Amino acid sequence: MQKVTTFLWFDQNRAEEAADHYVSVVGGDSRVLDVTRWTPSSPGEPGTVMTVRFQLEGTEYIAFNGGPEFPFSEAVSLSVECASQEEADRLWDELTADGGQESQCGWLKDRFGVSWQIIPPGLGEALTDPDPEKAARAMKAMLGMKRLDIEALRNA
């Protein structure tokens, strides 16, 4: 068991739907680990989902059906280092589907309001090229993108 776990507060009983969606989109070593339900002595409706413990590529998260008090913001995001441009494109498409929103520089919000950064391979190298002019051109290109295209960044 990991010592520090990200806890995601969802509104409108969407924790289980979100966890199932994330597990299916990320794939690999991703799965729902357990579901706990509200009891008659708890503040939630007895029998409905309270928390879903799940893992994405081996990292554990907890999704909680807490209500509308604390909405998500871009101040916290899940960052995914992709192995290929194809993986980055697939994740982008699946996470922006059904109400997700594209943002700038590889950031997006999924249909649940959670912010993600989808990072194609080679982004760090392009932005920190030893040639400062090349690095500056890559940065300028990235700032004009929503979905990151590593080939376009390398060619900048």
Rank of each mutant, 00 (worst) to 15 (best):
V49D: 11
T51W: 08
R53T: 15
Q55T: 14
Q55R: 15
Q55F: 03
E57V: 12
E57N: 15
G58I: 05
A63W: 08
N65R: 07
G66R: 01
G67P: 02
G67R: 05
P68D: 15
A75L: 03
V76G: 05
S77L: 03
S79L: 11
S79R: 07
S79T: 14
V80L: 07
V80E: 00
E81F: 09
C82T: 13
C82F: 05
A83N: 10
A83L: 09
S84R: 02
A88R: 05
D89F: 05
L91M: 07
L91G: 07
L91C: 07
W92Q: 08
E94K: 10
T96R: 08
T96Q: 02
T96S: 10
T96W: 03
A97D: 13
G99Y: 13
G100M: 00
G106W: 03
W107M: 12
W107N: 13
L108H: 02
K109M: 12
D110I: 04
F112V: 06
F112N: 05
V114I: 15
S115M: 09
W116D: 03
I119R: 15
L123C: 06
G124W: 07
G124E: 12
T128I: 04
T128Y: 04
D129S: 09
D129H: 14
P130D: 06
P130H: 03
P132K: 03
K134A: 07
A135M: 02
A136W: 01
R137V: 00
A138R: 01
L143F: 06
L143W: 01
